[in-house]
Design a protein around this nucleic acid. Structure first.
Lengths: 183, 183
DNA sequence: ATATAAACAGAACAAGTTGTTCACTATTGA
DNA sequence: TCAATAGTGAACAACTTGTTCTGTTTATAT
Protein backbone atom coordinates (compact mmCIF):
# COMPACT_ATOMS: atom_id res chain seq x y z
CA UNK A 1 0.00 0.00 0.00
CA UNK A 2 1.13 3.51 -0.85
CA UNK A 3 2.81 5.23 2.07
CA UNK A 4 0.49 8.22 1.69
CA UNK A 5 -2.57 6.00 1.87
CA UNK A 6 -1.25 4.23 4.94
CA UNK A 7 -0.47 7.48 6.74
CA UNK A 8 -3.88 8.94 5.94
CA UNK A 9 -5.66 5.80 7.04
CA UNK A 10 -3.76 5.71 10.31
CA UNK A 11 -4.38 9.40 10.92
CA UNK A 12 -8.10 8.83 10.45
CA UNK A 13 -8.15 5.85 12.82
CA UNK A 14 -6.10 7.70 15.41
CA UNK A 15 -8.38 10.72 15.30
CA UNK A 16 -11.50 8.56 15.33
CA UNK A 17 -10.37 6.53 18.34
CA UNK A 18 -9.49 9.67 20.26
CA UNK A 19 -12.88 11.23 19.60
CA UNK A 20 -14.68 7.94 20.34
CA UNK A 21 -13.17 7.84 23.80
CA UNK A 22 -14.81 11.16 24.63
CA UNK A 23 -18.02 11.26 22.66
CA UNK A 24 -20.97 9.18 21.58
CA UNK A 25 -20.52 7.70 18.12
CA UNK A 26 -23.78 9.12 16.84
CA UNK A 27 -22.78 12.66 17.75
CA UNK A 28 -19.45 12.51 15.97
CA UNK A 29 -19.31 14.35 12.65
CA UNK A 30 -17.06 13.73 9.69
CA UNK A 31 -16.00 17.36 10.07
CA UNK A 32 -14.53 16.64 13.49
CA UNK A 33 -12.67 13.59 12.30
CA UNK A 34 -11.01 15.27 9.34
CA UNK A 35 -10.10 18.26 11.43
CA UNK A 36 -8.39 16.14 14.07
CA UNK A 37 -6.83 13.89 11.45
CA UNK A 38 -5.80 17.02 9.54
CA UNK A 39 -6.85 15.78 6.13
CA UNK A 40 -9.15 17.06 3.41
CA UNK A 41 -12.82 16.20 3.25
CA UNK A 42 -12.53 14.49 -0.12
CA UNK A 43 -9.67 12.39 1.21
CA UNK A 44 -11.83 11.00 4.00
CA UNK A 45 -14.50 9.93 1.56
CA UNK A 46 -11.86 8.39 -0.71
CA UNK A 47 -10.98 6.05 2.20
CA UNK A 48 -14.34 5.40 3.82
CA UNK A 49 -17.77 5.47 2.31
CA UNK A 50 -19.37 6.72 5.52
CA UNK A 51 -18.72 7.11 9.25
CA UNK A 52 -20.41 3.75 9.77
CA UNK A 53 -18.00 1.97 7.45
CA UNK A 54 -15.12 3.55 9.31
CA UNK A 55 -16.49 2.09 12.54
CA UNK A 56 -16.94 -1.30 10.92
CA UNK A 57 -13.37 -1.36 9.64
CA UNK A 58 -12.07 -0.27 13.02
CA UNK A 59 -13.95 -3.10 14.70
CA UNK A 60 -12.63 -5.57 12.19
CA UNK A 61 -9.04 -4.46 12.72
CA UNK A 62 -9.41 -4.63 16.48
CA UNK A 63 -11.16 -7.97 16.77
CA UNK A 64 -9.41 -9.72 13.94
CA UNK A 65 -6.28 -8.98 15.88
CA UNK A 66 -7.73 -10.39 19.09
CA UNK A 67 -9.22 -13.47 17.46
CA UNK A 68 -6.21 -14.14 15.27
CA UNK A 69 -4.09 -14.43 18.37
CA UNK A 70 -6.56 -17.05 19.62
CA UNK A 71 -6.30 -18.83 16.31
CA UNK A 72 -2.57 -19.22 16.83
CA UNK A 73 -3.02 -20.84 20.19
CA UNK A 74 -5.73 -23.01 18.76
CA UNK A 75 -3.40 -24.38 16.12
CA UNK A 76 -0.43 -24.81 18.40
CA UNK A 77 -1.89 -26.94 21.14
CA UNK A 78 -5.34 -28.05 20.30
CA UNK A 79 -5.33 -30.76 22.95
CA UNK A 80 -5.37 -28.55 26.03
CA UNK A 81 -8.90 -27.28 25.48
CA UNK A 82 -10.60 -28.90 28.34
CA UNK A 83 -12.79 -27.44 30.98
CA UNK A 84 -10.89 -25.28 33.46
CA UNK A 85 -7.65 -25.71 31.55
CA UNK A 86 -5.54 -22.93 33.00
CA UNK A 87 -4.38 -21.69 29.62
CA UNK A 88 -7.75 -21.92 27.90
CA UNK A 89 -8.75 -19.81 24.96
CA UNK A 90 -10.70 -17.61 27.30
CA UNK A 91 -7.82 -16.94 29.64
CA UNK A 92 -5.84 -16.11 26.54
CA UNK A 93 -8.47 -13.57 25.49
CA UNK A 94 -8.50 -11.94 28.93
CA UNK A 95 -4.71 -11.74 28.89
CA UNK A 96 -4.75 -10.26 25.44
CA UNK A 97 -7.23 -7.59 26.50
CA UNK A 98 -5.15 -6.67 29.54
CA UNK A 99 -2.16 -5.99 27.29
CA UNK A 100 -4.25 -3.21 25.71
CA UNK A 101 -2.82 -3.24 22.20
CA UNK A 102 -4.41 -0.63 19.92
CA UNK A 103 -5.76 1.13 23.00
CA UNK A 104 -8.67 -1.24 22.75
CA UNK A 105 -9.50 -0.52 26.39
CA UNK A 106 -10.28 3.12 25.67
CA UNK A 107 -12.97 1.85 23.36
CA UNK A 108 -14.30 -0.97 25.54
CA UNK A 109 -14.82 1.43 28.42
CA UNK A 110 -16.44 4.82 27.97
CA UNK A 111 -19.47 5.95 26.04
CA UNK A 112 -19.29 3.54 23.17
CA UNK A 113 -18.55 0.26 24.91
CA UNK A 114 -21.84 -1.30 23.85
CA UNK A 115 -20.98 -0.65 20.23
CA UNK A 116 -17.80 -2.67 20.50
CA UNK A 117 -19.10 -5.28 22.87
CA UNK A 118 -21.88 -6.11 20.41
CA UNK A 119 -19.34 -6.57 17.67
CA UNK A 120 -17.18 -8.58 20.02
CA UNK A 121 -20.05 -10.87 20.95
CA UNK A 122 -20.92 -11.56 17.31
CA UNK A 123 -17.36 -12.63 16.54
CA UNK A 124 -17.23 -14.65 19.72
CA UNK A 125 -20.19 -16.86 18.84
CA UNK A 126 -18.21 -18.88 16.29
CA UNK A 127 -15.41 -19.42 18.76
CA UNK A 128 -17.80 -20.47 21.51
CA UNK A 129 -19.59 -22.85 19.16
CA UNK A 130 -16.29 -24.61 18.49
CA UNK A 131 -15.49 -24.80 22.19
CA UNK A 132 -18.91 -25.79 23.40
CA UNK A 133 -17.82 -29.08 24.90
CA UNK A 134 -15.73 -27.08 27.40
CA UNK A 135 -18.89 -26.02 29.15
CA UNK A 136 -20.80 -29.28 29.39
CA UNK A 137 -22.44 -29.91 32.70
CA UNK A 138 -25.40 -31.81 34.05
CA UNK A 139 -27.41 -28.61 34.16
CA UNK A 140 -26.64 -27.50 30.62
CA UNK A 141 -27.68 -30.78 29.00
CA UNK A 142 -31.34 -29.79 28.89
CA UNK A 143 -30.76 -26.43 27.21
CA UNK A 144 -30.96 -25.90 23.43
CA UNK A 145 -27.57 -25.52 21.78
CA UNK A 146 -28.28 -22.11 20.25
CA UNK A 147 -29.38 -20.91 23.68
CA UNK A 148 -26.14 -22.09 25.25
CA UNK A 149 -23.93 -20.53 22.56
CA UNK A 150 -25.67 -17.20 22.98
CA UNK A 151 -25.56 -17.50 26.74
CA UNK A 152 -21.85 -18.28 26.97
CA UNK A 153 -20.90 -15.54 24.52
CA UNK A 154 -23.02 -13.04 26.37
CA UNK A 155 -21.59 -13.98 29.75
CA UNK A 156 -18.07 -13.64 28.40
CA UNK A 157 -18.77 -10.17 27.01
CA UNK A 158 -20.52 -9.11 30.21
CA UNK A 159 -17.58 -10.35 32.23
CA UNK A 160 -15.23 -8.27 30.10
CA UNK A 161 -17.54 -5.26 30.50
CA UNK A 162 -17.64 -5.61 34.26
CA UNK A 163 -13.89 -6.09 34.44
CA UNK A 164 -13.08 -3.06 32.28
CA UNK A 165 -15.62 -0.80 33.96
CA UNK A 166 -14.29 -1.70 37.40
CA UNK A 167 -10.75 -0.72 36.59
CA UNK A 168 -9.42 -4.18 35.66
CA UNK A 169 -8.15 -4.74 39.19
CA UNK A 170 -8.38 -8.52 38.94
CA UNK A 171 -5.78 -10.64 37.19
CA UNK A 172 -6.73 -12.41 33.94
CA UNK A 173 -6.58 -15.67 35.90
CA UNK A 174 -9.10 -14.45 38.48
CA UNK A 175 -11.44 -13.16 35.79
CA UNK A 176 -11.21 -16.46 33.94
CA UNK A 177 -12.25 -18.13 37.21
CA UNK A 178 -15.19 -15.73 37.59
CA UNK A 179 -16.19 -16.51 34.01
CA UNK A 180 -16.15 -20.28 34.48
CA UNK A 181 -17.98 -19.99 37.80
CA UNK A 182 -20.73 -17.98 36.07
CA UNK A 183 -21.23 -19.80 32.86
CA UNK B 1 -54.33 16.00 30.55
CA UNK B 2 -56.00 17.84 27.68
CA UNK B 3 -57.59 15.48 25.18
CA UNK B 4 -55.72 17.16 22.32
CA UNK B 5 -52.41 16.67 24.06
CA UNK B 6 -53.19 13.06 24.79
CA UNK B 7 -54.20 12.32 21.21
CA UNK B 8 -51.13 14.02 19.80
CA UNK B 9 -48.85 12.21 22.21
CA UNK B 10 -50.39 8.87 21.34
CA UNK B 11 -50.20 9.58 17.62
CA UNK B 12 -46.50 10.33 17.98
CA UNK B 13 -45.84 7.17 19.98
CA UNK B 14 -47.83 5.06 17.53
CA UNK B 15 -45.97 6.45 14.53
CA UNK B 16 -42.64 6.16 16.30
CA UNK B 17 -43.19 2.53 17.28
CA UNK B 18 -44.26 1.63 13.76
CA UNK B 19 -41.16 3.20 12.24
CA UNK B 20 -38.91 1.70 14.92
CA UNK B 21 -40.04 -1.78 13.98
CA UNK B 22 -38.74 -1.26 10.45
CA UNK B 23 -35.79 1.05 10.73
CA UNK B 24 -32.72 1.79 12.78
CA UNK B 25 -33.34 4.50 15.38
CA UNK B 26 -30.42 6.61 14.21
CA UNK B 27 -31.77 6.77 10.67
CA UNK B 28 -35.22 7.92 11.69
CA UNK B 29 -35.93 11.61 11.11
CA UNK B 30 -38.37 13.87 12.88
CA UNK B 31 -39.84 14.55 9.46
CA UNK B 32 -40.86 10.91 9.09
CA UNK B 33 -42.41 10.78 12.52
CA UNK B 34 -44.56 13.86 12.08
CA UNK B 35 -45.63 12.75 8.63
CA UNK B 36 -46.79 9.37 9.89
CA UNK B 37 -48.31 10.88 13.01
CA UNK B 38 -49.92 13.53 10.84
CA UNK B 39 -49.06 16.46 13.05
CA UNK B 40 -47.22 19.74 12.60
CA UNK B 41 -43.53 20.12 13.13
CA UNK B 42 -43.90 22.69 15.89
CA UNK B 43 -46.32 20.36 17.65
CA UNK B 44 -43.76 17.60 17.81
CA UNK B 45 -41.22 19.90 19.40
CA UNK B 46 -43.85 21.16 21.85
CA UNK B 47 -44.13 17.56 23.13
CA UNK B 48 -40.57 16.28 22.91
CA UNK B 49 -37.35 18.20 23.06
CA UNK B 50 -35.61 15.81 20.65
CA UNK B 51 -35.92 12.36 19.09
CA UNK B 52 -33.77 11.00 21.92
CA UNK B 53 -36.16 12.28 24.57
CA UNK B 54 -39.02 10.64 22.71
CA UNK B 55 -37.16 7.34 22.88
CA UNK B 56 -36.44 7.82 26.57
CA UNK B 57 -40.08 8.51 27.36
CA UNK B 58 -41.18 5.52 25.32
CA UNK B 59 -38.79 3.29 27.25
CA UNK B 60 -40.03 4.67 30.53
CA UNK B 61 -43.65 4.04 29.63
CA UNK B 62 -42.90 0.51 28.48
CA UNK B 63 -40.73 -0.60 31.36
CA UNK B 64 -42.49 1.26 34.12
CA UNK B 65 -45.49 -0.75 33.05
CA UNK B 66 -43.57 -4.01 33.18
CA UNK B 67 -41.86 -3.29 36.47
CA UNK B 68 -44.94 -1.84 38.11
CA UNK B 69 -46.69 -5.14 37.53
CA UNK B 70 -43.81 -6.81 39.34
CA UNK B 71 -44.10 -4.31 42.15
CA UNK B 72 -47.68 -5.45 42.72
CA UNK B 73 -46.67 -9.06 43.05
CA UNK B 74 -43.83 -8.04 45.27
CA UNK B 75 -46.15 -6.34 47.69
CA UNK B 76 -48.83 -9.03 47.61
CA UNK B 77 -46.83 -12.11 48.52
CA UNK B 78 -43.36 -11.23 49.49
CA UNK B 79 -42.77 -14.60 51.13
CA UNK B 80 -42.79 -16.75 48.00
CA UNK B 81 -39.52 -15.38 46.70
CA UNK B 82 -37.38 -18.41 47.04
CA UNK B 83 -35.22 -20.15 44.53
CA UNK B 84 -37.22 -22.00 41.90
CA UNK B 85 -40.49 -20.66 43.25
CA UNK B 86 -42.84 -21.34 40.34
CA UNK B 87 -44.42 -17.92 40.49
CA UNK B 88 -41.25 -15.96 40.98
CA UNK B 89 -40.81 -12.39 39.90
CA UNK B 90 -38.96 -13.62 36.87
CA UNK B 91 -41.66 -15.97 35.71
CA UNK B 92 -44.00 -13.06 36.17
CA UNK B 93 -41.83 -10.91 33.90
CA UNK B 94 -41.71 -13.59 31.21
CA UNK B 95 -45.47 -14.00 31.38
CA UNK B 96 -45.95 -10.28 31.15
CA UNK B 97 -43.75 -10.08 28.06
CA UNK B 98 -45.62 -12.89 26.38
CA UNK B 99 -48.87 -10.97 26.75
CA UNK B 100 -47.32 -8.32 24.49
CA UNK B 101 -49.05 -5.23 25.81
CA UNK B 102 -48.02 -2.04 24.01
CA UNK B 103 -46.61 -4.18 21.20
CA UNK B 104 -43.47 -4.32 23.24
CA UNK B 105 -42.41 -7.39 21.28
CA UNK B 106 -42.14 -5.44 18.03
CA UNK B 107 -39.54 -3.34 19.77
CA UNK B 108 -37.68 -6.10 21.58
CA UNK B 109 -37.17 -7.95 18.32
CA UNK B 110 -36.05 -6.22 15.14
CA UNK B 111 -33.39 -3.63 14.44
CA UNK B 112 -33.53 -1.77 17.68
CA UNK B 113 -33.69 -4.55 20.24
CA UNK B 114 -30.35 -3.62 21.79
CA UNK B 115 -31.64 -0.15 22.46
CA UNK B 116 -34.50 -1.48 24.53
CA UNK B 117 -32.66 -4.39 26.08
CA UNK B 118 -30.05 -1.99 27.42
CA UNK B 119 -32.75 0.10 29.00
CA UNK B 120 -34.40 -3.05 30.31
CA UNK B 121 -31.17 -4.27 31.87
CA UNK B 122 -30.57 -0.98 33.65
CA UNK B 123 -34.02 -1.08 35.25
CA UNK B 124 -33.58 -4.73 36.07
CA UNK B 125 -30.45 -4.23 38.15
CA UNK B 126 -32.39 -2.75 41.10
CA UNK B 127 -34.85 -5.61 41.04
CA UNK B 128 -32.09 -8.21 40.87
CA UNK B 129 -30.24 -6.54 43.73
CA UNK B 130 -33.32 -6.92 45.90
CA UNK B 131 -33.75 -10.54 44.90
CA UNK B 132 -30.11 -11.55 45.10
CA UNK B 133 -30.65 -14.18 47.77
CA UNK B 134 -32.73 -16.15 45.25
CA UNK B 135 -29.58 -17.02 43.39
CA UNK B 136 -27.24 -18.04 46.19
CA UNK B 137 -25.22 -21.15 45.52
CA UNK B 138 -21.91 -22.62 46.60
CA UNK B 139 -20.34 -21.41 43.34
CA UNK B 140 -21.58 -17.87 43.54
CA UNK B 141 -20.28 -17.25 47.08
CA UNK B 142 -16.80 -16.37 45.84
CA UNK B 143 -17.98 -13.78 43.31
CA UNK B 144 -18.23 -10.04 44.07
CA UNK B 145 -21.77 -8.80 44.60
CA UNK B 146 -21.66 -6.18 41.84
CA UNK B 147 -20.41 -8.86 39.47
CA UNK B 148 -23.31 -11.13 40.36
CA UNK B 149 -25.93 -8.41 40.01
CA UNK B 150 -24.63 -7.48 36.57
CA UNK B 151 -24.35 -11.13 35.60
CA UNK B 152 -27.87 -12.09 36.59
CA UNK B 153 -29.41 -9.02 34.94
CA UNK B 154 -27.46 -9.67 31.77
CA UNK B 155 -28.45 -13.33 31.65
CA UNK B 156 -32.09 -12.42 32.10
CA UNK B 157 -31.98 -9.90 29.27
CA UNK B 158 -30.09 -12.31 27.02
CA UNK B 159 -32.64 -14.99 27.79
CA UNK B 160 -35.43 -12.63 26.75
CA UNK B 161 -33.49 -11.73 23.59
CA UNK B 162 -33.00 -15.35 22.64
CA UNK B 163 -36.62 -16.17 23.37
CA UNK B 164 -37.99 -13.27 21.33
CA UNK B 165 -35.63 -13.79 18.41
CA UNK B 166 -36.53 -17.45 18.21
CA UNK B 167 -40.23 -16.84 17.88
CA UNK B 168 -41.17 -17.27 21.56
CA UNK B 169 -42.03 -20.91 21.02
CA UNK B 170 -41.32 -21.87 24.62
CA UNK B 171 -43.78 -21.26 27.44
CA UNK B 172 -42.92 -18.69 30.11
CA UNK B 173 -42.47 -21.59 32.50
CA UNK B 174 -39.90 -23.29 30.27
CA UNK B 175 -38.01 -20.05 29.76
CA UNK B 176 -37.97 -19.43 33.50
CA UNK B 177 -36.44 -22.87 33.87
CA UNK B 178 -33.81 -22.05 31.22
CA UNK B 179 -33.07 -18.85 33.07
CA UNK B 180 -32.57 -20.51 36.43
CA UNK B 181 -30.48 -23.26 34.89
CA UNK B 182 -28.20 -20.66 33.32
CA UNK B 183 -27.76 -18.15 36.05
C1' DA C 1 -73.16 30.06 25.84
C1' DT C 2 -69.25 32.41 25.59
C1' DA C 3 -64.77 34.12 26.85
C1' DT C 4 -60.17 32.90 27.63
C1' DA C 5 -56.41 30.08 27.63
C1' DA C 6 -54.12 26.40 25.64
C1' DA C 7 -52.95 23.45 21.73
C1' DC C 8 -52.25 22.82 16.87
C1' DA C 9 -51.09 23.98 11.78
C1' DG C 10 -47.87 25.03 8.67
C1' DA C 11 -44.68 27.80 6.59
C1' DA C 12 -40.47 29.96 6.77
C1' DC C 13 -35.90 30.27 8.76
C1' DA C 14 -30.76 29.78 10.02
C1' DA C 15 -27.46 26.68 11.12
C1' DG C 16 -25.29 22.49 10.58
C1' DT C 17 -24.28 17.95 8.22
C1' DT C 18 -23.59 14.90 4.41
C1' DG C 19 -21.59 13.14 0.36
C1' DT C 20 -20.00 14.69 -4.33
C1' DT C 21 -17.43 17.21 -7.73
C1' DC C 22 -13.67 19.66 -9.76
C1' DA C 23 -9.49 21.90 -10.84
C1' DC C 24 -5.11 21.90 -8.85
C1' DT C 25 -0.87 20.35 -6.29
C1' DA C 26 2.30 16.94 -4.18
C1' DT C 27 4.23 12.46 -3.71
C1' DT C 28 5.45 7.91 -5.14
C1' DG C 29 7.85 4.41 -7.37
C1' DA C 30 9.26 2.38 -11.81
C1' DT D 1 12.48 11.73 -15.10
C1' DC D 2 7.69 11.11 -15.62
C1' DA D 3 3.28 8.96 -15.51
C1' DA D 4 0.24 7.34 -12.10
C1' DT D 5 -1.68 7.91 -7.87
C1' DA D 6 -3.06 10.43 -3.67
C1' DG D 7 -4.32 14.49 -1.34
C1' DT D 8 -6.15 19.61 -1.18
C1' DG D 9 -9.66 22.83 -0.50
C1' DA D 10 -13.44 25.08 -1.92
C1' DA D 11 -17.89 24.96 -3.59
C1' DC D 12 -22.34 22.48 -4.10
C1' DA D 13 -27.08 20.60 -3.50
C1' DA D 14 -29.78 18.06 -0.60
C1' DC D 15 -31.28 17.08 3.73
C1' DT D 16 -32.00 17.55 8.84
C1' DT D 17 -32.60 20.05 12.96
C1' DG D 18 -34.78 23.09 16.15
C1' DT D 19 -36.98 27.77 16.39
C1' DT D 20 -40.24 31.35 15.44
C1' DC D 21 -44.09 33.30 13.58
C1' DT D 22 -49.10 34.14 12.49
C1' DG D 23 -53.50 32.35 12.29
C1' DT D 24 -56.83 28.71 13.52
C1' DT D 25 -59.12 25.23 16.31
C1' DT D 26 -60.38 23.14 20.60
C1' DA D 27 -61.10 22.68 25.58
C1' DT D 28 -62.94 24.33 29.84
C1' DA D 29 -64.41 27.47 33.58
C1' DT D 30 -67.84 30.66 34.67
Amino acid sequence: MDRRQRKTREAIFRAFIEILSKKDFNNITVGEIIEKADIGRATFYAHFETKEFLLKELCEELFCHVFDSVGDVHNDHRHIFECEAPDSVFLHLFQHLKKNDNNILDLLSGHNNELFMRYFKTNLQKLVASQLNMFDSSKSKSLPESFRINHISAVFVETVCWWVNNGMKETPETITEYFFLSV
